[in-house]
Nucleic acid binder design. Structure first.
Lengths: 354, 354
DNA sequence: TTGCACCATTGCAACGATGCACCAAACTAG
DNA sequence: CTAGTTTGGTGCATCGTTGCAATGGTGCAA
């Protein structure tokens, strides 16, 4: 159906081997004119080497995997685009997988990717344990965990890339404290994931710095068992706002798990007739595209996504290119923790006088 | 490195052919006990067939391509997730490509996908002409164009899937007219893409139905030459709002190209001190996740994305499975136009009395 | 003149799975 | 009892590319 290397060889009057040599940059081993003839033939026939055949032979793949909770969440969509851009610069493509935060789907996807010859995957999972994908890493899969920090049980070769969640949450919380707020709430879904826990620690650290105790704060983490999916963050925020604002002693400021959740909180506050930015302050996390389009524009913690995507790709590239021993004992395991940045907009303001 | 079919065969005491037969559902050609032995061996060794080898031999691929302008736009992210879900149900995966609305990138990506053995692609491009990808379609690529309607020069096998943009825009506009608005604006970037044009026609049709002329309307389509990318829609809306509201006779209602643009308009109106929903009405298009989180929640036209994604996958599946003649003369070319739906929220209200 | 090194180029055996054509054994019919 | 058929399973060429080992031709030193 398509043009093969044999047809190119015939057209150029050389052997397939020579064409292969041209294709793989071994053109110093032949006469310049030969190389030219081959290149002309390639152009004339519009030949492109067959990917699967190449991959079968070499074991290398130009495709890398990306497993995210859900691209419908703009945060992950944006990350996906940055990662794709980094991959494209090196001539790679990205295979997209939505895990819906389900460990079984994460594992299934990684296994399929492995069987498809994909040797490098960015896994966006904030689960504390990665044991469900360990067998593949041991077989030689290069794995970069995104939005997650290193844990004791991690395989030695694992690279973690994340923003410093504790620092981010601390920045957010201190911003509120400096504005005079003394009754704060932290809104999150369940605290199972490592980065939610880290953000909570940052929240607590900031409070301690101001001499506040648990008495002055309230933590809202949703219905105990119900687990919120990635598209339910806004609902979560809305419910949280409804419940928190109906209590006898409502908080004057809220630190939200992320921007989607913060937008939900703003909507919930609006439902309750409160003016966000004056009656109630809200800080988000991520700085998604829509954060500064919200009403009021959202004060939030920015994740340096382009730099994070570049780093993720670079590690993948290095890992896949490196020695691929059966033990997966490549060097370079560890964590890369980037510094987040506070972006002040209008959803936060001085604490109202009681 | 990985387990091969030969090892499974050895483990089960049969030939590779028999294992292949089991793998491909030809198990009626063997004793039940043989089949059982093979399946046990597969499970014991954790064998998964090598994708590239399989694909090289059969020409079939389990991967399909998706080319979108940018997954950072939540509309495309959501569509990507729905398409992936449909593909997953049939055991397929999705390779993601961001074209940034650049025809050259569209073509390059399609060529790479084709070389990778991918025979079915959903192309989300609203360019009037698809000539830059025609050669591949002629070679046998099954192409589904999304968010675009049929054009005269289209290849016969091309399937177009889109919402009825004209009807959608007409619904939006009539909603405003029925609320008493008589001075309307249509905000779009350049009108090059077919669906923007269709939306504009729907806008005009509704106006005519109410006996209004071009005198009463104003069209804003950005700086003539500057072309806005997918992430610039909010900026576009904001600029439009700023300019439109500063004129001597500002519109009381605006039909926006899409939700991202509408959110920008809302932000722009807020900058100008206007209350959206009372002073100014705004209608969006798409119904992205964040539409009902906006302040005020956005009245918009909903695209039935899950149904559209299912249809896109179904056509791809049928096309790739069908006869793959060199002429690309498969049956089933044409358009599928789904009906959009008006979702009324709070960004629209009765026209203010002048 | 022979031997050797060097050069551009080519032959060939893989990579792992597939599926057609074939085969041996067991059964059936006449 | 033999010819024909069915059953259960295998051998082998093949998909397109790669890269090592091998080819034969040329130039140079001995």
């Amino acid at each position: 159906m398509s043009v093969t290397i044999h047809q190119v060889a015939a057209e150029a009057g050389v052997s397939p081997s020579t064409v292969s040599n041209v294709l793989n940059g071994r053109s110093d081993r032949m006469l310049p004119q030969t190389r030219e003839r081959v290149e002309e033939a390639i152009a004339r026939l519009g030949y492109r080497p067959n990917g699967p055949a190449r991959q079968l032979r070499t074991g290398r793949s130009q495709v890398l995997g990306l497993v995210v909770p859900s691209v419908a969440n703009p945060f992950w969509g944006t990350f996906a685009r940055h990662l794709e851009a980094a991959a494209l610069r090196a001539g790679h493509r990205v295979l997209l997988c939505n895990s819906e935060r389900d460990p079984a789907r994460e594992r299934d996807y990684l296994e399929e990717l492995w069987a498809d010859g994909i040797r490098g995957v960015v896994l966006c999972s904030s689960l504390p344990s990665l044991e469900h994908v360990l067998p593949l890493v041991e077989q030689g899969l290069t794995l970069v965990a995104f939005d997650r920090t290193a844990q004791a049980g991690d395989p030695p070769s694992l690279v973690n890339i994340s923003v410093d969640n504790a620092v981010g949450a601390e920045l957010a919380t201190r911003h509120l404290l400096q504005l005079g707020h003394r009754r704060l709430a932290f809104v999150s879904g369940s605290l199972r994931s490592v980065n939610r826990r880290a953000r909570f620690r940052g929240f607590e650290a900031a409070l301690e710095g101001f001499g506040l105790t648990a008495e002055d704060t309230v933590v809202w983490s949703g219905a105990a068992d119900h687990d919120y999916g990635d598209l339910d963050f806004p609902d979560l925020g809305r419910s949280a706002a409804r419940e928190l604002l109906a209590t006898g002693r409502p908080p004057t400021a809220i630190v939200a798990l992320n921007d989607m959740c913060a937008l939900g909180i703003i909507a919930g506050a609006r439902d309750a007739g409160l003016q966000v930015g004056t009656d109630l302050s809200v800080v988000g996390f991520d700085d998604i595209v829509l954060a500064d389009l919200a009403s009021p524009p959202l004060t939030t913690i920015r994740q340096p996504l382009p730099a994070m995507a570049d780093a993720a790709f670079a590690h993948l590239h290095a890992g896949v290119g490196g020695t691929s021993g059966t033990g997966g004992a490549r060097s370079g395991g560890g964590s890369l923790l980037l510094r987040p940045e506070l972006v002040v907009r209008s959803s936060t303001g001085p604490a109202p006088r009681a």
